[in-house]
């Protein structure tokens, strides 16, 4: 049986480092799933507390980041499955406040106004989660697969389908076409 690390400064230091290095990753991924700022913060809190308590298991993990994001994704999926979440009003159904109260709310408001974000949120969850991890958080296909507990091939397939849907969504929207920059269009691959 694995021994629990004694509480102390070393554990606290680790926690501080994780929050500083990966706090944004965890919070933004959580928000992408639940689209509720307060709920995302609660999830992020739970992620770091679980990671802190189980930090001995981390020593065998490859990457702190993927480990933390695995916890995040699992927690978010649990939340989305829960009854209460299915009955919550998502943020884009709420009136946008005229003057956001703080920088976090301001960031949420700006994000919610972004067309690409809206398009991503319109994707089914299996596509949305790969897009968020791969494009928004900049993880590799292998890391995304590790976090989601699937294969790289599956991630590639989901990404392909997600791109197709995003293309269609944004084209249909007509407000901005999903296009590559001019120079890359002139150089077919």
């Amino acid at each position: 049986m694995r021994k629990q690390a004694p509480p102390g400064a070393a554990g606290a230091d680790e926690l501080e480092q994780w929050m500083q290095a990966y706090g944004r990753d965890v919070l933004n991924v959580a928000y992408a799933y639940v689209r509720n700022h307060h709920l995302a913060q609660d999830i992020a809190q739970e992620v770091f507390l679980r990671a802190f308590v189980k930090r001995m298991t981390l020593r065998q993990a490859n990457s702190v980041r993927t480990w933390l994001l695995s916890i995040t994704v699992n927690l978010c999926r649990d939340v989305l499955r829960s009854w209460s979440q299915r009955h919550l009003v998502v943020v884009d159904e709420l009136p946008v406040p005229a003057a956001p109260a703080n920088t976090e709310e301001e960031a949420v408001a700006r994000l919610e106004r972004a067309e690409l974000w809206q398009a991503i949120q319109a994707l089914p969850l299996p596509y949305r989660e790969v897009v968020v991890l791969y494009y928004l958080r900049g993880l590799s296909g292998r890391e995304v697969a590790e976090i989601l507990g699937t294969t790289e091939d599956n991630v590639r397939t989901r990404l392909h389908r997600a791109r197709t849907r995003l293309h269609a969504w944004l084209t249909a929207k007509g407000e901005r076409r999903l296009e590559a920059p001019a120079e890359s269009r002139q150089q077919p691959r």
Binding site: L111, L178, A180, R185
Partner: peptide
């Protein structure tokens, strides 16, 4: 799809990010 991939990378980089308060 490749063009979309490239555009997505650039557009995603421009998306606002929530700070960790």
């Amino acid at each position: 799809n490749s063009r979309d991939d490239e555009w997505l990378r650039k557009a995603a980089a421009d998306l606002p990010e929530l700070p960790f308060p």
